[in-house]
Amino acid sequence: MSADGCCRPLSLIVTPGQRADCTQFVPVLEEIRIPRPGLGRPRKKPDSVAADKAYSNGPCREHLRRRGIRRTIPEKADSQAARLRKGSRGGRPPGFDEDRYKKRNTVERANNKLKSSRAVAARYDKRGYVFLGTVTVAALVIWLRS
């Protein structure tokens, strides 16, 4: 799931429970549609992305760099150690803004808002597409209340 600064869901993808989050990074970003005030098509590119260390891998960073999206993702300790071991061939460390990183909890808060719906928290639905409908309805309620 991705969320805006007001903890409203922007895009949702339902996956099996054992699936790693970082594998769904690109599909979630592709689903984002940011509505414009007035007329015009919705934007498909967010201004910036703040994520945790799970998304610190090369493909995620490369995708954001290619699309020109500002990113605030801390570097994993093992990646940092490998970069430092290479010396000057390891390259520069990725940029990191602590103030923007503090705002990454908006996704977690949006997740908690979704889980305030009992059907989402308990996942009564067996099939993925039915659960996606349940989560979408809960997200619509969040958007209508804000």
Rank of each mutant, 00 (worst) to 15 (best):
P35F: 05
R36C: 08
R36L: 04
P37H: 01
P37I: 07
G38D: 07
L39R: 13
L39Q: 11
L39M: 09
G40C: 00
G40Q: 01
R41V: 13
R41T: 15
R41S: 12
P42N: 07
P42M: 07
R43M: 13
K45Y: 09
P46V: 07
D52K: 04
K53W: 02
K53F: 03
A54R: 00
A54D: 00
A54K: 01
Y55N: 14
S56Q: 05
N57I: 14
G58C: 02
G58Q: 08
P59R: 11
C60R: 02
H63W: 15
R66T: 04
R66N: 01
R67M: 06
R67C: 01
G68L: 12
G68V: 14
I69Y: 02
R70C: 05
R71T: 03
T72H: 04
T72G: 03
I73A: 05
I73L: 01
P74M: 09
E75R: 01
E75S: 00
A77E: 07
A77P: 09
A77D: 06
S79H: 14
S79N: 15
S79Y: 06
S79Q: 15
S79W: 09
R83A: 08
R83P: 10
R83I: 11
R83E: 11
L84F: 08
R85I: 02
R85F: 04
K86C: 04
G87I: 15
S88R: 09
G90F: 08
G90Q: 08
G90E: 10
G91K: 10
G91W: 14
P93G: 08
P93R: 05
P94T: 11
G95N: 10
F96D: 13
E98H: 15
D99R: 15
R100L: 15
Y101C: 02
K102P: 10
K102T: 13
K103F: 13
K103T: 15
K103W: 13
